[in-house]
Design a protein around this nucleic acid. Structure first.
Length: 494
RNA sequence: GGCCCCUUCGUCUAGCGGCCUAGGAUGCCACCCUUUCAAGGUGGAGACACGGGUUCGAGUCCCGUAGGGGCUACCA
């Protein structure tokens, strides 16, 4: 959608710093970001900390970090600065106050002196605020104000008629004005509510397209009326669908987030949880972009820059969607599979170190390629390949029985393992191809199946029943270490 | 309760009146490949919420019903 009449495309993500970054919020931000990039515009981060009770200090950095991890660059924001700062609402209080009082002067808003008790009574009566101060005569209002009585400023919502607005995703939406209350614009502590603050900021920051979650749709008409009262040109609006819990019941929430998926694993919801679970930022981005929007051409895997070329808010599916977390698992595996080896090794290193392994980088670079088709998350490396980075003084597998292959007892297993040692010693070329040939010969010679010999070796050398291919593993381990581990396994069979 | 939004395989989606005996992906199942696990290949089961219209023709447009989601704060 062109916006030449509204200047360059400028979108923003405006979280309230009340908790760590939630994937639902990130997805909304991503759509705004994609749209800005598609049109060569700017993406702004603005912190909406107007709720003093709920704002958590220190969270701004965490929000920035989340964007950094994902690789979504921000043009203007608390860290980057910009021509329309500050980008933190608590630092722009005078602006909101000025406009709130301007609206009062112009008759679009009024001071309301209702006490908390009065409000509570009205709530109990079930009809909401009854606009009792809407038509208070100016003299009385002045008298109350001079007694330094607390007041809020409320918007004078039209009592009749309808308000409709255009949503880029759903088209025209119409509401009855009488459904809306005289919403508070400025609280008694001098802080604005969201309704006032975002409009003042979006105007002053020259936001061209407001992208926000659907939960804002009910207050869309209120906002439209405020824009009109202020006499400012309205931006375009796109109310984004939201993520529902994996079972489709209820909005995806931070608190309910950690329930178990079908396979028993917990569902990541916070950005930090994606990092901790070993997901790649590119995979997470691809995953999120594919919910509510699609690339076309039946393509599931695409880069962010490819998405930028095609993205449009008008193509976003208006329906909310269940959080399809299983697809991320698959996608992440695909990204690991096609990742650059050095990049992958670089990501794997801290994971292994975090699990207490001493990582030899050269070895890790050799291990990474044989892991690529096997890892779904970075964390899988621990279970799959931790043994590469351990010093063994004895066969450490939880059960010696893992050494036993089909129809084999301890004696047979030992016989196979002992017969393997001279085979290894005899190999001048220790490549996995040569090993394969040599051990096939051995199996034939001693009358065992390939699987029995290979499996016993696998267990002896890795301490696992499931591992990367045995011979490639031994090639990396080296002859000496392979033999050493096989001997330790034999010892355990004493 | 009132208001608003939404509704295609379990899930994410394609579909913008005839190309749909509804396509892709994931997940699931089977087979193939195979030294385990994966990966890869092939195949399979699996959906237009329901009821009315409009139209020569409806998954696609309209209305109703049902279901789901959201809002209804001096929270965002």
């Amino acid at each position: 959608m062109s916006s030449s009449d509204r200047g360059p495309v400028r979108t923003r993500y405006a979280p309230s710093p009340t908790g760590p970054q939630h994937i639902g919020g990130i997805r909304s931000a991503l759509f705004g970001w994609l749209f800005a990039r598609r049109h060569g515009g700017q993406f702004i981060l603005r912190i909406e900390d107007t709720d003093r009770k709920r704002s958590v200090p220190g969270l701004i950095e965490m929000i920035q970090d989340a964007f950094d991890w994902l690789g979504l660059d921000i043009d203007e924001g608390p860290r980057q600065g910009g021509p329309f700062g500050p980008y933190i609402q608590s630092q722009r209080l005078d602006l909101y106050q000025t406009w709130a009082h301007w609206l009062v002067e112009k008759g679009h808003a009024y001071k309301c002196f209702a006490t908390a008790e009065e409000l509570a009574q009205m709530r109990e009566a079930g009809s909401g605020y009854d606009r009792r101060y809407r038509d208070l005569d100016p003299a009385a209002a002045k008298r109350l104000a001079s007694r330094s009585q607390d007041y809020v400023i409320r918007f004078k919502m039209p009592l009749t008629g309808k308000t409709s607005g255009y949503d880029m995703i759903r088209g025209e939406v119409t509401f009855d004005n009488e459904q809306l209350q005289d919403t508070v614009l400025l609280k008694s502590d001098g802080f604005p509510t969201y309704h006032l603050a975002h409009i003042v900021d979006d105007h002053h920051m020259k936001i061209s397209h407001i992208t926000r979650a659907v939960e804002w749709l009910p207050s869309f008409p209120l906002h439209l009326k405020i824009w009109e009262a202020l006499g400012w040109q309205k931006p375009y609006f796109a109310h984004l669908p939201v993520l529902l819990n994996p079972n489709g019941k209820g909005k995806l929430s931070k608190r309910k987030g950690r329930f178990a998926a079908a396979d028993g694993t917990s569902v990541p919801v916070l950005v930090q949880e994606f990092i901790d679970a070993g997901y790649l930022p590119a995979a997470v981005l691809n995953f999120l972009t594919n919910i509510g929007w699609n690339f076309g051409d039946d393509r599931e895997i695409f880069s962010l820059s490819e998405a930028i070329e095609r993205f449009d808010l008008t193509d976003v599916n208006p329906a909310n969607s269940a959080y399809p977390i299983a697809k991320l698992h698959w996608l992440n595996g695909q990204y690991i599979q096609s990742a650059d080896v050095d990049y992958l090794a670089g990501l794997l290193k801290p994971v292994l170190q975090g699990a207490g392994y001493a990582v030899d980088e050269a070895r890790l670079r050799r291990v990474a390629p044989i892991l690529q088709v096997r890892l779904k998350t970075l964390n899988d490396v621990i279970a799959m390949a931790g043994f590469f980075f351990e010093e063994w003084s004895c066969f450490t597998a939880p059960a010696t029985e893992i050494l036993f292959q089909k129809k084999m007892d301890g004696r047979a297993t030992r016989q196979v393992l002992e017969a393997s040692i001279p085979v290894i010693e005899s190999l001048a070329d220790f490549s996995h191809e040569r090993q394969y040939a040599a051990f096939k010969d051995l199996a034939k010679k001693i009358g065992y199946k390939n699987g029995q010999v290979f499996g016993a070796l696998r267990a002896a050398v890795t301490g696992q029943r499931v591992s990367p291919p045995t011979f490639e593993t031994m090639e990396i381990l080296g002859k000496a270490e392979s033999i050493r581990r096989i001997k330790l396994a034999c010892d355990s069979l004493e």
